[in-house]
Design a protein around this nucleic acid. Structure first.
Length: 152
DNA sequence: GCCAACGTTGGC
DNA sequence: GCCAACGTTGGC
């Protein structure tokens, strides 16, 4: 059982969007970073829990929880020339990019903001708040997970 | 294989 | 809108 944090821009896809999807489930397409891809391909397992993080918005922070309901499989948006995330180097026989499906679990009662997370010495090692980090998917230790949940 | 140029991310 | 940080690309 692993814990994760996944970033999404709420203007593009928010926790509310996830909540109203059929089965409250959506595929996490569009990741075009090898490190993030490798985590989805190799380490994300059914039932893993995910902090849903809103980035590039008024109050960046953790807004909810999701869980992994389908393990890594080819990101078909890479095959579609009309898709924003089209990648001509990826094809169905040998897909470069991988995604997982996540399902809504809950919204937090409040946003646990990046600003707040940065103040906690307990979270100094969290990838999210290390300077210059741009990974859209990152691991969270169980201790970090429990600590953050207790902030709600 | 080096590295400059360029594009993207994402906080502010 | 700005810009720092970082990943990728492509010439050599």
């Amino acid at each position: 059982m692993h814990y994760w944090l996944m970033k999404s821009e709420p203007d593009t896809f928010s926790i509310d969007d996830l909540q109203v999807r059929p089965n409250q489930t959506e595929h996490w397409d569009g990741v075009r970073n090898y490190q993030a891809r490798n985590m989805m391909r190799d380490e994300m397992k059914l039932g893993d829990l995910v902090f849903f993080y809103h980035s590039n918005c008024d109050e960046p922070g953790i807004v909810g929880i999701a869980k992994v309901v389908k393990e890594g499989y080819p990101d078909f948006t890479a095959f579609d020339p009309d898709d924003k995330h089209f990648d001509p180097k990826s094809n169905a026989d040998k897909p470069t990019w991988i995604m997982v499906d996540v399902q809504f679990v809950k919204k937090l009662s409040r946003t646990i903001s990046l600003k707040e997370l940065k103040l906690k010495t307990e979270l100094a090692d969290l990838a999210l708040i290390r300077r210059g980090n741009r990974l859209s998917i990152m691991p969270v230790t169980e201790a970090q997970w429990q600590f953050i949940l207790a902030l709600e």
